[in-house]
Design a protein around this nucleic acid. Structure first.
Lengths: 236, 236
DNA sequence: CGCCAAACGGGACTCCTGTTCCATTAGCGC
DNA sequence: GCGCTAATGGAACAGGAGTCCCGTTTGGCG
């Protein structure tokens, strides 16, 4: 993409260019709140931002490009993540955080838009991945600490637990379109926690690695999907 | 919607009309596989189906309409759902089924498209909801039977368990764009199972109901979102 | 302070999507 | 078979998104 190079290493980042970018991104967010992603028109954004249509096309190329840049902007802002000393409280806070993001009028519209854009534009998809990669890594630390404290089984895949907290929320938001509220968020956190405690997030021993800890944990193995009830797994 | 009435109660459903519909939907799927939803052009579909552009516009109105009709068609085809007598095997089969749907070249493209369409068109969103409502209800029966057998705690929300199986898969597919394979599917099923066994899907006692069974579970209750910042997360 | 390249802005132009009009075809009931 | 009408098909038309061209502005730099 030619736009990217301009976005990243701008050769004249001083005054005007920065001002234009700021104005355009702000206008984009306003438009997203009012009309949603499918109603995002480059002309409108340009007009609202008070810049030329040509400029918007030149620098962002498409609605998806606008939205991707917006997401990149958001990704750069670090968010506070809880570390309360209790896995339950941390995961609840995580769920609440996701809830806040998708519920907030402005942020929610942006997320919806990015996800919509990501379904058809690789650029937006990459921005989304980058954002979540960062957030998941941040929150994973609190899960790791819970493992260190012995609250969760040894070998638990922290990032997986974090993802498991938000997965049901996004599932509702995107697939079933059910409302997402505090109740759902809290339950989601607790479900992830329960599964984690039961050892469902313990990484399968990679080939011939240390299978020593396994005896200690609740012994969850991933085997062939096919047949019925091997019975053994998952029991503590 | 005016199209809907035509799709639903067609006044002359015989021969030609049905043929046209079939041809158009087939062409739509082909186009989706080749170009994806954002590349779905009404003209192309019409040409490929060997029908007039006008007809396609008249009966489906938009790419989203095409995709929604396709989804409705798929929803009407009942899928076999396992009932092996073991919750684990059933949930694994469920996960495998979802995996199959999103992995299959043709079906997968269709699902991606419907989801993309659902992000901007209520019609497609409704078709998607209807589809999943049906599928979830079908699979929920096997979970209910597991509850009856005593494999899972009394009061477990069967539909929730089923949703929990597919949620991580869709999360990967849509949000993080990670690959989804048998391994992920199997883990997803086991995680849901673990949480269900731990009682994380037991419905919160509605007012003054039986909270007796709760002692048996690992004491996971839905409480107030206790500690930490639930306010301004995701912010800078 | 003044040069110069980078960035911006406006307007005309193109192409493609979606609509409208009307002639034609083909189910369906008799 | 036969007519009636729903449904289809083709072609012309309109509107809007995206591109191009070129003149204007702006900020970095000597």
């Amino acid at each position: 993409m030619e736009q990217e190079s301009r976005l990243a290493g701008m050769q004249r980042p001083g005054g005007r260019t920065a001002r234009v970018r700021e104005a355009v991104l702000a206008a984009t967010q306003d438009e997203l709140v009012e009309r949603g992603f499918h109603g995002l028109a480059m002309d409108q954004v340009a007009a609202r931002a008070g810049v030329g249509k040509t400029t918007v096309y030149r620098r962002w190329g498409s609605p998806a490009g606008l939205v991707a840049d917006l997401m990149t902007e958001l990704a750069e802002q670090s968010s506070p993540h809880a570390d309360t000393g209790s896995a339950e409280a941390d995961l609840r806070a995580n769920a609440a955080s996701v809830l806040g993001a998708v519920t907030d009028r402005r942020l929610g519209a942006t997320f919806q838009a990015v996800i919509a854009a990501a379904t058809c534009e690789e650029e937006a998809a990459a921005a989304l991945r980058a954002f979540y990669g960062r957030r998941v890594a941040e929150w994973a630390r609190s899960v790791e600490r819970a493992v260190e404290r012995g609250e969760l089984p040894e070998g638990t895949d922290a990032a997986e637990v974090v993802r498991a907290v938000s997965a049901p929320l996004y599932y509702r938001l995107l697939v079933t379109k059910e409302p997402v509220d505090e109740d759902v968020a809290a339950r989601s956190a607790l479900q992830a926690l329960a599964a984690a405690r039961a050892g469902a997030f313990v990484r399968p021993a990679p080939a011939v690695a240390s299978s020593a800890e396994r005896g200690r944990s609740t012994s969850v193995r991933v085997q062939n999907v096919t047949t019925a009830d091997q019975g053994s797994e998952m029991r503590g």
